[in-house]
Amino acid sequence: MSRRPVNPSLKRKRPETDSPGLVDAERAILDSIKGKKDLGIWARDIKQETKLTDHVVNKSLKSLLAKKLIKEVVNIQNKGKKHYMAFEFEPSKEISGGEWYVDGNLDKELINVLKQLCFRYLRTQKVATLDGVYNELKKNRVVTFDISNQQVSEILNSMVLDNDLIEVKSTGLGDYHSIPIGTVCYRIASAAGVAKGPKMGAFASIPCGACPRISLCTPDGVISPGTCVYYTKWLSIDF
């Protein structure tokens, strides 16, 4: 007796997966990590969510890392704990710290450069608002990323705490004549503004590090150290 042909549409299909070749434990862990998107998840929380043993979780994490399906990231809120994220996501600012951090460490050199630039601008303007400082930094493209108004505010507030600047409100008179009365402003803390400000070494202050055209700069090119006004000014600074 011959077997009746089976309709292909009635055959049981295996569930399709985004990542073939994974065992059940790896798939459960990958789903748990992907579910957290750009926030990632701690290894301990993975164990709690999946109800898997430490041995199975650790073995699966190593396998997923080797397959480049997940990655280990630094969480600035707790650097001592292993934090995992799906490979296709980038850490959120809550995890990475944003532009102020590099590989989980505070970028002190970048912050010092920005402080020095803010200080120099205030030394020439005598007094300035947050928007004024922000627009100056944006106009001169002193950093290679899109700096935000909030980030400039953090820099200025830090300088106030360091006693480099003082926060005042405009009176509408004298140096404040162009600023509406009551507007929060910043000015240099010392009376003369001489020999005051964030300390930084000669190489930390070199403008080339923050120049958005550095890749086009050559000795004989249109953009070169010989024609750069910022580099010329830097050479004349007495460190």
Rank of each mutant, 00 (worst) to 15 (best):
A191F: 08
M1C: 03
G226F: 15
Q77H: 12
T124Q: 12
V57C: 13
K79S: 07
E109K: 09
D103A: 07
I237L: 14
D220K: 14
N149G: 02
V133I: 14
G174E: 12
V23D: 15
Y230M: 10
L117F: 02
S178M: 12
E136M: 11
E26F: 02
V73P: 03
E99H: 13
Q150F: 09
K36E: 14
A128C: 10
G21T: 06
K81W: 04
L106D: 02
E136W: 06
D54G: 02
A204L: 14
T144F: 01
N105S: 08
L114W: 03
R120K: 12
V57I: 13
R27I: 01
S153K: 15
P225S: 08
Y176T: 06
L22I: 09
I41Y: 05
P207S: 07
H55V: 12
G21V: 05
P91Q: 00
E90Q: 15
E94Q: 04
I41D: 08
E26L: 02
P198E: 11
M1N: 07
S178H: 14
V229N: 10
Q48E: 15
Q125W: 00
G97I: 11
R120C: 00
V57A: 04
S224H: 07
I33V: 15
N105F: 12
Q77T: 07
I33G: 02
I181T: 14
L216R: 12
G221F: 05
N157W: 04
V168M: 08
T183H: 01
A86E: 10
L114F: 03
Y231W: 13
Y121D: 02
L30W: 11
R27L: 12
T171S: 15
L165A: 08
R4S: 10
G132L: 07
K233Q: 14
I29P: 13
N75H: 15
A86P: 02
F89S: 06
K36N: 05
R141Q: 15
D220L: 10
G104F: 03
S158I: 01
V74S: 09
K36H: 11
D18Q: 11
S158P: 04
G174T: 04
Y186C: 07
D24E: 12
G104V: 10
F203T: 13
S63N: 15
H83L: 10
S148W: 07
Q151L: 11
I155P: 03
K139V: 01
P198T: 14
S2H: 08
